[in-house]
Design a protein around this nucleic acid. Structure first.
Lengths: 194, 194
DNA sequence: AGACGATGTTACTAGCGAGTATACGAGGAG
DNA sequence: CTCCTCGTATACTCGCTAGTAACATCGTCT
C-alpha cells in the first residue's frame, strides 16, 4: 500500500522550482531536477512534456497567488492607502510562503510565448497597484512626492528582493518581515516623527 | 586615421555586459556577444580568454564603483544618518550610469571562484552599510524599528531593483530617481508628516 | 619591397544538455 | 501463469555552444 505514484506533476513541479530558484532556469539542467527528485531524467518526461512546462506551471502558481491577493476582501474595501498597505504585506508573506515560485517569476525574462504571457500578467498586477496608489494620493493619504508608477516599481523592488535572501526556518517570521517592509515603505527609516 | 582598434578588452566588455544584462549570463552565447560587437566569435578570443573573463571584468567594474562610493568624502564625514542617505543616493545613481555592470552583479550567483569572490565583496559592502545604519540608530537619527541587517537588505532591494526596469534616455533622470528612492526609504509613502 | 605581428575570418572539435526509443519490473485481471 | 499497464531505468540521438586551429588581411617597421 506504499504510494504507488510518488511522483506526480505537482510534486515534480515543486522540486523543479526549487532547483530553478537555486541555479537559475537557464543554469539548471533536467538532470539536476531529476537528481533532486530522486528519479531519472527520462522518468520526468512521463509526467511532464518538458523543461519549459515545469517553468510555466511555476509561473502560473506564482501569478495565481498574486491575483488571489487582489481578490481578497481587504484589498477591495476600505481606503485606498489601507488597501495598498494590505497588498504590500500580503505580497511579502506570499514571497515567503511561495518562495521558489516567486523567485522564478521575479527573474523570468520574456523569451517565449509562455514567459511573455507571464510577464504581461505580472505587469497587469503592477498596474492595478499603481491605480490604487494614485487613488490613495488623490485621497491625500499617500505622499504625492512620488509618481504612482515609480512608487509601484520601488515597492515591489523592495518586497520582491525577499526572494534573494529570505530562507524559511530562520528567526524572522513572514508576518514580522511583512510588517517591517510595510513600516519601512510607509513610515520610512527616518526617526519616528508622529 | 579611422580607429584602428575598435575592439579592445574594455569595449568588448561593454558589449558583453549589455548582452549579459539582456539575456542573462547563462542565456547569452558568445555568438550573441560577437554579433552585438559586429565581430566573429573567434575574434573575441584574441582579446579575452573566455566568457567568464568578460563576466569577471564586469563584476570588477561594478564592485569598484560601489567601493568608490564608500571612499567618497561625503560617505565618511558628518552624521551616520546623512552618510547612509548619501550612499543610497549614490548607489542609485551608479545603478543608472553603470546599468549593465550592476545588473550583472546583482543577479550573479556564486558558482565559481570568480563569482564567489564577487558575491563576498558585495556582502562586505552590505556589511559596511549595515554598520553605518546601526550607528545612525544609536544616534537616534534612524528608526530602530528595523534591525540594521534587514534594513540594509531592504534598502538595496529597492535601489537594486532599478536595474530591472530603468533605461537611460527616458524622462526620469538619475538624480531625480535617486532623490525619489531616498525620499521613499527615509520619509516613507505615508502623507508628509512634519 | 618584404617580413612581422596584431587582428579577423572560416572552418572545425568536444562536450554538454534536452529530449527519445526501448527494455525492465511490479502489480492487477483473467 | 500470462498478459497488460504503468512507471522507471539504460542507452541512445541530436543540436547547440564554448573554445580552437589554421588561414587571411593589413598596417608598420626596416
Amino acid at each position: 500500500m506504499e504510494v504507488r505514484k510518488p511522483y506526480d506533476i505537482d510534486s515534480l513541479t515543486d522540486v523543479a522550482l526549487r532547483v530553478f530558484a537555486e541555479r537559475g532556469y537557464d543554469g539548471a539542467t533536467m538532470d539536476d531536477v531529476a537528481r533532486a527528485a530522486g528519479i531519472t531524467k527520462a522518468g520526468i518526461y512521463h509526467h511532464v512534456t518538458g523543461k519549459e512546462a515545469l517553468l510555466a506551471r511555476g509561473l502560473d502558481r506564482a501569478l495565481a497567488a498574486l491575483q488571489a491577493i487582489l481578490a481578497e476582501p481587504a484589498a477591495n474595501r476600505g481606503r485606498a492607502a489601507e488597501r495598498v498597505r494590505f497588498i504590500v504585506r500580503r505580497v511579502a508573506e506570499t514571497a515567503c510562503s511561495l518562495l521558489p515560485e516567486l523567485t522564478v517569476l521575479f527573474r523570468v525574462k520574456a523569451t517565449s510565448p509562455a514567459t511573455e504571457s507571464a510577464v504581461e500578467r505580472r505587469r497587469a498586477f503592477d498596474r492595478a497597484v499603481a491605480r490604487l496608489i494614485a487613488e490613495g494620493q488623490a485621497d491625500g493619504e499617500l505622499s504625492t512626492a512620488i509618481e504612482p508608477g515609480l512608487a509601484t516599481r520601488l515597492i515591489f523592488g523592495t518586497s520582491n528582493s525577499i526572494v534573494e535572501w529570505y530562507r524559511p526556518g530562520g528567526a524572522l517570521k513572514p508576518a514580522q518581515l511583512a510588517a517591517a517592509i510595510e513600516a519601512l515603505l510607509f513610515e520610512g527609516l527616518g526617526p519616528a516623527k508622529s
